[in-house]
């Protein structure tokens, strides 16, 4: 079973994402900020990370830059999932090593489409 770490400071968003991802047969873990996410990754690297940008303690982009420097941290497929929807933020995310980018609000269709684009899921899942 593939694993996905959902990183978002909103419990509601984490719950929505968890439900969609579990329907796609992922094992889901949650983190409420970048630092919690880093701790989870140091314990065990997930296959995929769904990552919010603006969070207390450590933001998504700071987490991502740190993750890509960690041992094994280049492996997880990282999909941003944020209300930041301008070209500058998207470019910065890709430069920092994000694989895909979801602009909120999102739904199951968009998440599935982006996970296929990022190569975590096969086309047949659609």
């Amino acid at each position: 079973m593939k694993t996905c770490l959902v990183v978002d400071d909103s419990r509601v968003i984490r719950k929505v994402a968890r439900r969609i991802l579990e329907d796609l047969a992922f094992h889901v873990d949650e983190a409420a900020d970048g630092l919690e996410a880093l701790a989870a990754c140091r314990k065990e690297m997930p296959d995929a990370i769904l990552l919010d940008w603006n969070m207390p303690v450590m933001t998504g982009i700071d987490f991502l830059r740190q993750l890509r420097r960690e041992r094994g941290g280049e492996a997880p497929i990282v999909v941003f999932c944020t209300t930041e929807n301008d070209v500058e933020h998207i470019s910065e995310a890709i430069k920092a090593g994000a694989n895909e980018y979801i602009m909120k609000p999102f739904d199951g269709d968009i998440l599935l489409s982006k996970f296929i684009d990022a190569g975590i899921l096969a086309q047949e899942a659609a």
Binding site: I94, I110, D117
Partner: peptide
């Protein structure tokens, strides 16, 4: 633009 279009192509 989020259904089927990879973000690199969007950029």
């Amino acid at each position: 633009v989020q259904r089927g279009l990879p973000v690199q192509m969007l950029l």
